[in-house]
């Protein structure tokens, strides 16, 4: 289902992940989040931005276990745990947050 953002049509795959990762903007992220029924707060943006930094460095979307570990190292234990991330992204932090961040689905995620 394509997203329409600022008059532009943004193509996605059948699960709603962006086809062209380079097109990502904060407005597109907000549109994806709205479609996912996620109300974006500063905490949500922090995770989304962290995922984009991770992707820029390693060229993959991290598995959830790897995301929580990396979050813990950067932001501390209160943010680097499953409960915190699932509270923000109920359908799965790696899956839902990656989609909003404009990344592909994490490798190994079925």
């Amino acid at each position: 289902m394509p997203y329409t953002v600022n008059g532009n049509t943004i193509e996605t795959d059948e699960e709603g992940y962006l086809m062209d990762l380079s097109l990502w903007t904060q407005d597109i992220a907000a549109a994806i989040a709205a479609a996912e029924n996620v109300d974006m707060t500063d905490e949500h943006w922090q995770v989304v931005n962290f995922l984009r930094e991770y992707y820029n460095e390693y060229q993959i979307a991290p598995a959830i276990r790897v995301l929580t570990k990396a979050m813990k190292e950067k932001f501390g234990a209160e943010k680097g745990n499953n409960k915190y991330l699932y509270d923000l992204f109920p359908y799965g932090p790696a899956k839902q947050a990656c989609k909003i961040a404009g990344l592909p689905k994490p490798t190994g995620c079925v």
Binding site: E57, Y58, Q59, I60, P62, A63, V66, K69, A70
Partner: peptide, 9 residues
């Protein structure tokens, strides 16, 4: 660059 991510895994 992904090979550098393996440590995190």
């Amino acid at each position: 660059p992904t090979y550098r991510a393996l440590g995190g895994y």
